[in-house]
């Protein structure tokens, strides 16, 4: 499949996932989309030039454990495994809460704290960078970028 079709398909899957009931899949869709865009889009790849970052994502109920490893201008997604020495661990109530935290156009920050939806352990700047890239992807998928 040509590169742009792969990207379009991944973006459509991601956008569909954002509105689907199966919110747990959205993190996987986001990371898959991010890996694909980093592979095929040099402009977006500039975001991780020289960047090493280790992200651990875990749901509080223990059903989801994923990791994102940025190294050598690539993203490696690790499923169902704890990684050693993450720069930041993001613990979330469910996939929907995580996506709300990362991508909502008007995030309910107080609500998120009140319902203990997301908690963080580690260097917050890594989360900020990841959230920027996620938001940019969302805007790209929506055709706003």
């Amino acid at each position: 499949m040509p590169d742009d079709l792969i990207l379009k398909s991944a973006m459509k899957n991601f956008l569909d996932g954002l509105t689907s009931e199966v919110a747990e899949d959205v993190l996987q869709l986001l990371l898959s989309l991010m890996a694909a865009v980093l592979e095929f889009n040099p402009g977006f790849r500039k975001n991780i030039a020289g960047f090493n970052g280790r992200y651990q994502f875990k749901s509080k109920d223990g059903h989801i454990t994923m990791a994102a490893l940025f190294k050598d201008n690539r993203l490696e997604v690790v499923r169902d495994k704890d990684i050693p020495d993450p720069d930041i661990t993001i613990l979330f109530k469910d996939g929907k809460a995580l996506m709300g935290y990362l991508l909502s156009p008007k995030p309910d920050i107080l609500g998120s704290i009140l319902h203990q939806e997301v908690s963080l352990d580690g260097n917050l700047n890594y989360l900020y960078k990841f959230a920027f890239m996620s938001k940019r992807l969302q805007l790209m998928a929506e055709g706003a970028f």
Binding site: L102, P105, K106, L124, N125, Y128, K129, A131, F132, K135
Partner: peptide, 15 residues
């Protein structure tokens, strides 16, 4: 300053 990183693409138009 880095706390605005996630919002760089949206802060211009936030409500």
């Amino acid at each position: 300053g880095l706390t605005i990183w996630p919002e760089l693409d949206t802060m211009s138009t936030r409500e």
